[in-house]
Simulated assay, not measured.
Amino acid sequence: MEREDTTTSPDNTQSESVSVSVPLSAVLRYLIPIAVLLLSANYVNETYGQIRAENLYYPYLIIGVMCVLSLVVIIEETIDLRSVQRDIGTHEALAEYVNQWRVSISLAILIVIYVVLIPVLGFFSASVILMTASMYATGVQRWRLATLVIIATLSLIWLMFIEVLGIQPPAGLIDGQIYDLLPTL
C-alpha cells in the first residue's frame, strides 16, 4: 500500500505530496510541445506526395521552425524540472507553471478561436479581434499605437492580397456586408 505524505502549510492546510506534483507538472510541461511535434509529423505525413513540393516549402519551413522551438521548450523544461522545488504541492506547481506560460497559453487559445471565427465573421473582422485580444494578453500599454499597428497591418494585407494578387479572403457575416458596401463608396 502506497503511503500518501502530506505537509501542513503555515495556515494549517494540508497539501499533496511531492510524488504527485512533480510527475503531474512534468506531464503538463511536456504536453504542448509534444502535441506540436505529433501534429507536425501528422501534417507532413498527410501532405507529402499529395501536394506539389513547391507548394509545401513555406508550410514545411514553418513546421520545421515550430518543431525546433518545441524541442528547445522540451530541453528547457527538462532543465527546469531538475531544479524544481521538491516540497511544493500539485496546486502550487501547476499554478507556477500556468503563470510562467500564461501568455503562450492565452495566444494558443486565441488562435483556436481565430480559426473558428474566420468563416463566421470573415478574415478581417476575425483578425481585428485576434490582434486586439493578443495585444491585451501580452500586456500592451499604448493602445493608440496598437490601433495604428492593427490598421496598418490589415491595410497592408488588404493591398497585397485583394488589390495586387486578387485573392479574396473568407468573407463571413461582417466582412460580407462590408464587401457589399465597398463598390458603392
Rank of each mutant, 00 (worst) to 15 (best):
residue 114 Y to Q: 05
residue 14 Q to T: 09
residue 184 T to Y: 15
residue 111 I to V: 15
residue 147 T to K: 01
residue 174 I to E: 04
residue 165 L to G: 06
residue 47 T to N: 14
residue 3 R to K: 12
residue 115 V to M: 15
residue 3 R to P: 03
residue 22 V to R: 10
residue 103 V to M: 11
residue 176 G to T: 05
residue 70 S to N: 06
residue 104 S to W: 13
residue 135 M to W: 03
residue 103 V to H: 13
residue 18 V to N: 08
residue 142 R to K: 12
residue 134 S to T: 07
residue 113 I to P: 07
residue 143 W to G: 03
residue 37 L to F: 06
residue 155 S to F: 07
residue 25 S to L: 11
residue 113 I to S: 07
residue 174 I to Y: 01
residue 2 E to T: 09
residue 98 V to I: 12
residue 71 L to A: 12
residue 31 L to R: 02
residue 79 I to H: 05
residue 63 I to P: 01
residue 158 W to K: 00
residue 102 R to K: 15
residue 162 I to Y: 00
residue 152 A to L: 04
residue 116 V to R: 12
residue 157 I to Y: 00
residue 94 L to C: 05
residue 64 G to M: 09
residue 124 F to H: 02
residue 158 W to E: 00
residue 48 Y to R: 14
residue 38 L to V: 07
residue 126 A to E: 03
residue 15 S to D: 11
residue 154 L to E: 03
residue 140 V to I: 13
residue 170 P to L: 03
residue 9 S to D: 12
residue 65 V to A: 06
residue 26 A to W: 01
residue 94 L to Q: 02
residue 185 L to V: 12
residue 42 N to A: 13
residue 55 N to P: 08
residue 178 I to Y: 11
residue 88 I to T: 08
residue 77 E to N: 15
residue 11 D to F: 09
residue 76 E to K: 15
residue 60 Y to Q: 09
residue 117 L to A: 04
residue 1 M to W: 09
residue 8 T to L: 07
residue 49 G to F: 04
residue 128 V to I: 10
residue 137 A to P: 00
residue 90 T to G: 00
residue 90 T to W: 03
residue 6 T to C: 06
residue 80 D to A: 13
residue 87 D to N: 10
residue 50 Q to H: 10
residue 5 D to R: 12
residue 44 V to A: 07
residue 33 P to C: 04
residue 124 F to G: 01
residue 85 Q to M: 11
residue 148 L to P: 01
residue 91 H to Y: 10
residue 120 V to C: 08
residue 27 V to A: 15
residue 147 T to L: 03
residue 53 A to S: 14
residue 175 D to G: 04
residue 143 W to A: 05
residue 76 E to M: 14
residue 47 T to L: 15
residue 3 R to H: 07
residue 122 G to T: 06
residue 7 T to K: 12
residue 67 C to W: 06
residue 151 I to T: 01
residue 134 S to W: 03
residue 151 I to W: 01
residue 48 Y to M: 11
residue 82 R to D: 14
residue 118 I to M: 01
residue 124 F to Q: 02
residue 51 I to A: 05
residue 157 I to P: 01
residue 21 S to M: 04
residue 34 I to N: 01
residue 163 E to V: 08
residue 27 V to P: 00
residue 177 Q to L: 15
residue 151 I to V: 09
residue 108 A to S: 13
residue 119 P to I: 02
residue 102 R to T: 06
residue 35 A to W: 00
residue 60 Y to F: 11
residue 99 N to P: 04
residue 139 G to W: 08
residue 82 R to E: 13
residue 54 E to P: 00
residue 58 Y to K: 07
residue 44 V to I: 13
residue 184 T to G: 10
residue 40 S to Q: 12
residue 107 L to E: 06
residue 128 V to L: 03
residue 65 V to W: 06
residue 37 L to E: 05
residue 30 Y to G: 02
residue 68 V to K: 14
residue 41 A to V: 06
residue 111 I to E: 08
residue 147 T to E: 00
